[in-house]
């Protein structure tokens, strides 16, 4: 829907609630989430789609929100870690991430938490190779990944 000032009205479901925002045609989803909706867990690491710290679940799939225009997101569903609060999955993720020391500085962590959630919901039988493949989309400069990969494996293990 186009407005008179060149801004576009966009309706999207964010963390379970319908939200309406007015955005410029070139506004990135990451900016809408951070600046208009106050979802600061979505981190701005590079804005070129390399680092993955702005990953959100977009219609159920992990997507880098710096590569999505908010205008495209009309009618879509977005989940950030703020939306996982109180869920059984988040309790389990918190437990396995803390137990494995799967985070250090915390800047890439919300993205990896969402990845864990996505694995639990969508790929609960993912193999180690599939977990590694999925993890390649998010950069971490601190951990060396070993403890993150272990946490992701434990998040979906039924042991």
């Amino acid at each position: 829907m186009s407005g008179t000032d060149g801004e576009i009205q966009v309706k999207l479901k964010v963390n379970g609630r319908m939200r309406e925002v007015r955005v410029k045609p070139n506004e990135r989803l990451i900016d809408t989430l951070r600046e208009k909706l106050g979802l600061k867990s979505v981190k701005m690491g590079c804005l070129t789609g390399e680092c993955g710290t702005c990953t959100v679940l977009y219609n159920g799939q992990p997507v880098k929100s710096c590569l999505v225009l908010t205008a495209e997101a009309d009618g879509k569903e977005v989940i950030t870690v703020e939306g996982l609060a109180g869920s059984d999955e988040m309790r389990r993720i918190t437990e396995v991430f803390a137990r494995n020391n799967a985070f250090q500085c915390g800047f890439c962590t919300p993205a990896f938490v969402l990845l864990a959630y996505w694995l639990m919901k969508v790929k609960p039988k993912a193999t180690d190779e599939e977990i590694l493949e999925a993890s390649n989309s998010i950069l971490c400069r601190c951990t060396g990944y070993t403890q993150i990969l272990q946490a992701l494996k434990e998040a979906i293990s039924r042991v």
Partner: peptide, 17 residues
């Protein structure tokens, strides 16, 4: 286990936040 789990929930604030 480390206790700064506010980094998992998005509560942890960095300069840009």
């Amino acid at each position: 286990p480390r206790r700064d789990i506010d980094k998992l929930t998005g509560e942890a604030q960095f300069i840009a936040d």
